[in-house]
């Protein structure tokens, strides 16, 4: 059994707004095993990006614990030691806005090395090495972001995240702004890097088909809470939570073989409620086709159904 790199316990992140408290993340517990790719899937507004940002340190958790190699990092980023900061890096969704338009690729990649005081004569060598890792030619050093295509920008962003040899990279929908052919290339780069450097990924996305092909385990999030978490193959062969089934059956696919893998057609209905007014009981009961009486009253708890397969639903609870 491999060790856990990150353990998140009952993490909550609430944002006070004039309309009421937005419960973006509302009690999430999971762990990330060293060397794996954990896919975090959910609709917009489900809190998956907030979870990643809190892990990065951009937000201070309202409640709960984040343990990184046993060390509590659920503090404001300013209190996090520098040596720990470099262990967790992030690749953002929109490559167009995350690179400084006035800096060359060389400068963009040098910046993290400068901040973390890598020896001066080492820096340029490291930058070249990074470009090699993400399979970009060396003449890209002197290009500005506007000279690059969307996919190339994202590649530079990945190189920047790798600069300090992090052990965990948070990928926040790194390919959702790109075309499928470019997505495939970026994903290959991402997977190659994992093979070479043994980094761990938290992969945030809404694309289930992509998840099927890259992640080790999949976690589904809905309204700030996890619904289901399972190893990838088990997850797609035996999805249990009604929301998971709804998501899976909503995916338009290309072949009949894929059609056969999808669970029986579950008509998706309703929309994700606002995280300000979370429905009582199970937050999914308004859209659920398997609703029981208890669902409107009591929030179900996570339960292990099979080997590493956890579901949070009353249908599967042993006492219910």
């Amino acid at each position: 059994m491999q060790e856990d790199l990150v353990v998140i316990e009952e993490l909550k992140k609430h944002f006070p707004t004039p309309q009421g408290t937005v419960r973006a993340v509302d009690g999430v517990s999971f762990s990330i095993v060293t060397g794996e790719t954990l896919g975090l899937v959910g609709e917009s507004g489900s809190g998956k990006s907030t979870t990643a940002y809190t892990l990065l340190g951009a937000y201070k958790p309202t409640e709960g614990k984040i343990l990184f190699r046993g060390q509590d990092i659920g503090k404001p980023l300013s209190k996090r030691p520098k040596a720990l900061k470099k262990e967790i890096q992030m690749v953002f969704q929109d490559p167009g806005t995350t690179l400084n338009p006035r800096k060359q690729v060389r400068q963009i990649l040098l910046l993290p090395l400068g901040i973390h005081r890598v020896a001066r004569n080492e820096r340029m060598r490291r930058v070249r090495e990074l470009l090699g890792l993400v399979e970009l030619p060396e003449d890209y050093l002197f290009k500005y972001p506007h000279e690059l295509g969307g996919g190339e920008k994202q590649t530079v962003a990945i190189a920047r995240a790798l600069a300090l040899n992090p052990s965990l990279i948070l990928l926040d929908e790194p390919t959702s702004a790109l075309d499928v052919s470019i997505q495939a290339k970026i994903m290959n780069v991402i997977l190659n890097i994992q093979e070479q450097l043994d980094v761990t990924y938290l992969f945030v996305t809404h694309d289930m088909s992509l998840m099927r092909n890259v992640s080790t385990r999949v976690a589904i999030m809905y309204l700030g809470k996890l619904c289901e978490i399972a190893p990838t193959v088990e997850f797609f062969e035996n999805p249990l939570h009604p929301y998971t089934k709804m998501l899976l059956s909503s995916i338009p696919v290309l072949t009949d073989e894929e059609e056969a893998v999808k669970p029986e057609k579950v008509m998706s209905r309703g929309e994700i409620p606002s995280p300000v007014n979370v429905p009582p009981g199970c937050s999914f009961h308004l859209r659920c086709y398997d609703k029981m009486d208890i669902c409107t009253r009591e929030d179900p708890v996570m339960q292990e159904i099979g080997e590493g397969h956890y579901v949070r639903c009353h249908v599967f609870s042993t006492h219910g």
Binding site: A184, K185, L191, T255
Partner: peptide
């Protein structure tokens, strides 16, 4: 052919190479 191959499949099978160039 390359475009359809680049779409990730629900049945698994990994990620295709994509299309080189721009």
């Amino acid at each position: 052919q390359l475009l359809l191959a680049a779409v990730p499949r629900l049945t698994g099978g990994g990620i295709a190479k994509g299309i080189t160039g721009r």
